[in-house]
Design a protein around this nucleic acid. Structure first.
Length: 551
RNA sequence: GCGCCCGUAGCUCAGUGGACAGAGCGGCGGCCUUCUAAGCCGCGGGUCGGGGGUUCGAAUCCUCCCGGGCGCGCCA
């Protein structure tokens, strides 16, 4: 890759200058290359001279000049200049630049992927909803984001497992079972009331009707826990189906109840006791999480002898740990951020390194319709489910919108009316349109009897128009963009890239006609189009969005 | 009160300590006998919430203040 080549060359130039006595010896900071915003600053730029000037005891510009003088001969570089306070600006040779078009085609579907050393085995846990109701938009956001982060990690060379933690234990589940039983009895014409604080939503009635269709009246005498189990399974099936529809698949569905049944929670409590940090007070068992920065200590076994949810969290962590991952990523909603400190503290109470565990906290989603907030409340049943949203909006637009502009730190406004519009308000179509347009051009060329020649036989150096070269530069940036997006767990960088790339393609389309009488130019532009198509398709694939051939 | 997050154009938001802070939308005005007008071009628009500090250099890091979101159970 170009930037590693340049970085190595810079390091070598510094070493040469030191050997020649032109530059004193000093410890080199890491060499970073970036793409300047303005074309006048070249294709790649490095601030190494500014960063190292102090250590070298030289003026930045002098140091930069020493480096530049030793790199001018490189065949990949057309020019290297020192600019501003001491930036090194590199302009690639025409052959190197246009050669990117060939690189892309060689890589094909792998264009944009890279390796990270060391490669890690990573688990990403996300969504992790209660099976007491349908998924809502918040869950949908985490589903899409978690999946995209997992995909990015895979694209940068890591091995990833996606896991859904099923919160199917405790009072809420019991209440859910009782509520379902009441609805079922009502459907059978019996007298029953949904308990105080129970689940009133319309979906509970539908679920009861579903049971009636499947099982008739045979459950009339069954207890709440039977309904709890059956209801749980039905809700999970529904949740899984919606997730499938937006292309999110989990490798593991992990049940909290199973954790209890297998004795792992009890075992986990024993294990944490062995590390100290545990004491008894007020009849309960506490973990001294304040030893590791938590606000207050936390109960792990209640006065009643029941383990707390937190105890299950510890057991769950131990389960993850026992499965041998190098890194654990938890993706939680903002409403759970208060738990980060205690889980992290618990990990330290177990003597483990919290550095291998990441907690990504995402902000909430405000659903709007024509600018007006849509109220969502599970209890009253007045809610827009994620499924209804996908019905109305479609998978591509849903995914894209949820991934876009998503530093997950920012609350997201999701306006249904804007998202369903097939217009400029909706960037997903802008990007998809560029892809479809390219397909159309390739089809047109074929109709004109122009088939693309093997890229090795094409004179890519015929590409010279500014719009062509800008497009090539953008295409060449994909591996770097993917690597950064993965490292920063920031999939929205890919939507930004996709929109910029689409924009540059449209500019190219405006300025440069692909199919002309000039045979070699036609081939060069056709291959530029093909490489753009590959790049767009790969980005969209990383985002889980389709790349249509026609629109 | 304490903790975490946020505050960038009228709106929604990009911006990994670097060069004059960007995009889309909205507003106005142009471009289809030529490869998809779901497109392109032009015009406007900013005390990067505010004050201090660190740095050769700050929207970015530190600190205080203002404004907003979320969280602070032996619930899950």
């Amino acid at each position: 890759m170009i930037q590693t080549l340049l970085a190595d060359a810079i390091a070598r130039a510094v070493a040469d200058a030191q050997a020649a006595g032109a530059v004193p010896h000093f410890e080199m900071p890491p060499v970073e290359l970036s793409r300047p915003k303005v074309p006048e600053h070249g294709d790649w730029s490095s601030q190494i001279a500014l960063a190292a000037a102090k250590r070298a005891g030289m003026k930045p510009r002098d140091l930069a000049n020493e480096i530049a003088g030793r790199m001018a001969e490189m065949k990949e570089i057309a020019a290297v200049e020192v600019a501003g306070p001491g930036f090194l600006n590199f302009r690639l040779s025409h052959a190197t630049l246009t050669g990117i078009v060939g690189e892309v085609q060689e890589a094909g579907a792998n264009w944009g992927r890279s390796r990270t050393e060391p490669a890690e085995r990573v688990q990403v846990e996300f969504v992790s909803a209660n099976p007491t109701g349908p998924l809502h938009l918040g869950h949908g956001r985490w589903a899409v984001v978690g999946d995209a982060i997992a995909t990015l990690l895979e694209a940068t060379g890591h091995r990833v497992e996606r896991e859904f933690y099923i919160n199917d234990f405790g009072n809420q589940m019991q209440l859910f079972g009782e509520s379902l039983r009441a609805r079922y009895l009502q459907e059978n014409g019996r007298d029953a009331d949904v308990p105080e604080g129970g689940y009133q939503g319309a979906y509970m009635r539908e679920l009861a009707q579903e049971l009636l269709r499947e099982r008739g009246a045979e459950l009339a005498d069954a207890g709440a826990d039977v309904f709890r189990e059956i209801g749980r399974d039905h809700m999970l099936t529904h949740q899984r189906a919606v997730l499938e529809r937006i292309g999110v698949r989990f490798d593991v569905w992990f049940s909290e109840t199973e954790l209890h049944r297998a004795g792992d929670v009890t075992h986990g409590i024993e294990q944490v006791k062995q590390h100290g940090h545990v004491y008894e007070a007020d009849g309960a068992v506490w973990l001294r999480t304040t030893d590791f920065g938590d606000d207050k200590d936390r109960v792990i076994v209640r006065e009643s002898g029941e383990p707390t949810y937190f105890a299950a969290d510890i057991a769950y962590y131990l389960s993850k740990k026992s499965r041998g991952f190098d890194r654990l990523i938890y993706l939680w909603g903002a409403d759970h951020h208060g738990y980060v400190a205690r889980v992290r503290a618990a990990i330290q109470c177990l003597g483990d390194d919290p550095g291998t565990v990441e907690f990504l906290i995402g902000q909430l989603v405000n659903l709007k319709r024509s600018g007006q907030p849509v109220r969502m409340s599970k209890r009253t049943g007045e809610l827009v489910t994620f499924e209804e949203l996908v019905d109305e909006v479609g998978s591509d637009a849903t995914r894209y919108t949820l991934l876009r502009q998503l530093s997950i730190d920012t609350p997201l406004d999701f306006d249904i009316d804007l998202v369903v519009q097939r217009s400029q308000d909706n960037p997903v179509f802008y990007v998809q349109y560029a892809h479809a347009r390219i397909c159309s051009i390739i089809g047109y060329a074929r109709d004109q009897g122009v088939e693309s020649a093997p890229v090795a036989n094409v004179d890519l150096e015929r590409l010279s128009h500014p719009s062509e070269l800008e497009l090539v530069r953008k295409i060449g940036a994909l591996p770097d963009v993917v690597a950064t997006a993965g490292r920063m767990r920031a999939p929205h960088r890919l939507t930004n890239f996709a929109e910029e790339l689409a924009g540059l393609f449209h500019a190219f389309y405006r300025d440069c006609r692909v199919v002309t009488d000039d045979g070699s130019l036609t081939q060069a532009r056709l291959h530029l189009s093909i490489s753009t198509k590959i790049t767009l398709a790969n980005v969209l694939a990383f985002l889980g969005v389709t790349a249509p051939e026609r629109m």
